[in-house]
Design a protein around this nucleic acid. Sequence first.
DNA 1: CATGAATGAGGCTTCATTCAT
DNA 2: CATGAATGAAGCCTCATTCAT
Lengths: 186, 186, 186, 186
Amino acid sequence: MKRLGVKERIVETASDLFYHNGYNQTGINQIIAEAGVAKASMYQHFRSKEDIAVAYLLGRHAIWMTNLFDFVSTEDTSKGKVIRSFDYLIDWLCAVEFRGCGWQNIITDLPNDHDKIRNQAINHKNQIRNYIHTLLKNEAEYSVEQAGQLGDQVLILIEGAIILSQIQKNKWPILAAKNAAISLLK
Amino acid sequence: MKRLGVKERIVETASDLFYHNGYNQTGINQIIAEAGVAKASMYQHFRSKEDIAVAYLLGRHAIWMTNLFDFVSTEDTSKGKVIRSFDYLIDWLCAVEFRGCGWQNIITDLPNDHDKIRNQAINHKNQIRNYIHTLLKNEAEYSVEQAGQLGDQVLILIEGAIILSQIQKNKWPILAAKNAAISLLK
Amino acid sequence: MKRLGVKERIVETASDLFYHNGYNQTGINQIIAEAGVAKASMYQHFRSKEDIAVAYLLGRHAIWMTNLFDFVSTEDTSKGKVIRSFDYLIDWLCAVEFRGCGWQNIITDLPNDHDKIRNQAINHKNQIRNYIHTLLKNEAEYSVEQAGQLGDQVLILIEGAIILSQIQKNKWPILAAKNAAISLLK
Amino acid sequence: MKRLGVKERIVETASDLFYHNGYNQTGINQIIAEAGVAKASMYQHFRSKEDIAVAYLLGRHAIWMTNLFDFVSTEDTSKGKVIRSFDYLIDWLCAVEFRGCGWQNIITDLPNDHDKIRNQAINHKNQIRNYIHTLLKNEAEYSVEQAGQLGDQVLILIEGAIILSQIQKNKWPILAAKNAAISLLK
DNA sequence: CATGAATGAGGCTTCATTCAT
DNA sequence: CATGAATGAAGCCTCATTCAT
């Protein structure tokens, strides 16, 4: 850990804490203690706690999307990639013991004025949406309009699977969502 | 407001604040100030802030379920009631400006040891699940197994619609979820 | 000290520190440490550091005015009382080793948004002004207009004597001011 | 601004900030940011924030005295120059919206150990005093002793006019001081 | 000279809770 | 039941300064 630069250590540490313990439950003091960094050093790199959360979400977004792309790359067809996205959810959420989606988690109990964080969540979800829409538009069997509608439906299944598996601490919601997606995509 | 007993006033006030401003964002002092209750009186009725949250969730659960039953009662068929559940979501979430689901919101950024709250969320979601399962089992066209699988899929659509409409501050996810449900139920 | 209530201890301690060390130089931690009070107890009695300063200034105002009235009460004539005010300044400022006027001191390097404090200074100075005006209006030899003009001139001598004796750490400015006042009042 | 050397830029910027926003309210970071100077460069030229304040006061002193000399040069007699000094105060203090005297302002809420700054204030005030004394000693109508006493009285009127106009945010104290000076100088 | 990383100390304020009256 | 005093812990943030590049 000590090999990393200060900024990286802060983001790494904060990311773990924010994701696993929650944004409001994680204090600045805990972050700097675990990162082994002085408080003022932290504020040299980040204007506020919210900015650290933005860095956390940006970093996770890049990783999350890359992991998704890698995971679905085993499938040849666009439809196959969409279906396989649900296997990605299983893979991911089981590994984190159903701690859920960092973006969902952080916005649901967010102080009113934290718009930078809120925008990160919106961006993240929109990029997933765009990706699914793009995949389905590649499928000859769907019109553009159909692809859009089906894509939104799949997105909702993804979101529902994430939050419900978090509440139930179980993967059955993801499996059910996958089956629903298969049905919807015929 | 002053007509209600102390306990009721606390729960009423806390419910509004927890739901609209967030659990972590709502302080004990704000609750007692707005409820017009002394601090010690509050701690006479509730052992902790968490216990107030439990009371809040229990109360909202009763209201929420009753409202749902009323709303879908205009439909004769079980399948029709399930579909109409999504209209209920629109009705509800638009009215609260897409503040989302109180149960989802409270568990995503919760201190680790607050199991009483977590259990409330699980119970609430299970009762919705049971209700949908029951409805679909009434439908002759589905086997018991089919009813269960379809019910879970509908539940996921509901959850996804709630969280996504909260992130997007828009009702399109609920409409998309409704269409998905219609497709799935044929 | 421990006999006093918490609020009194806080005001007493803060008054000493604010006056002798300066408002910006005195931290909340120092106040509570010397007052022997928990931080949250302090904030139960005062909404902010500024509010403590207001209490300090209000308390000192009452004492200051009373002391002035007592001090000049040995004189029979109004003009005599005015002149004797400068002896009061000597008595006071020598005792505090020319630490100057608490109101002057606190407003000269005050954060912009501390209007409650600024208003205390204005009020204090206005009450001194009113007192001097009233005294001089009692003198038959002055017209009302003359009394007002002379009163303002005396007030300026007072203020100048205070600040200059603070800078010079010496009482000669007060003596010079007294002589000027004697000349002006004939 | 960029034409000036580093040291000059620092002093210029700090002077504005110290005078208009206050010494304690002005941070080192704000100074280097507005001066466009690196932090280490600043500490190469100045050992501490206090030293910057000393440079600020020295620079302002030269300007202030020059401005005074220029302003009163329209008068032929020494007594006339002294009286006209109060017009200088009006000219100056109205222009800076009654922000008061930089020397008075900085010493009233100063950490105890900042003697370099305190000495600047003493020097500045002594030079004004000397100037007024010199002028009045030129007047044949006053004995040397009288000139000294009247000079001190005028100085106090000046100081009082400055601080009271700052508190009241109004020029009436300066006008009253001028009238008092006219009376005292016969 | 510029850059900015790093720091220890301290800034003011709020939290949920307990206790005495 | 109401009142509110008192608390320890923790909240987020800023200060002037030093140092390595």
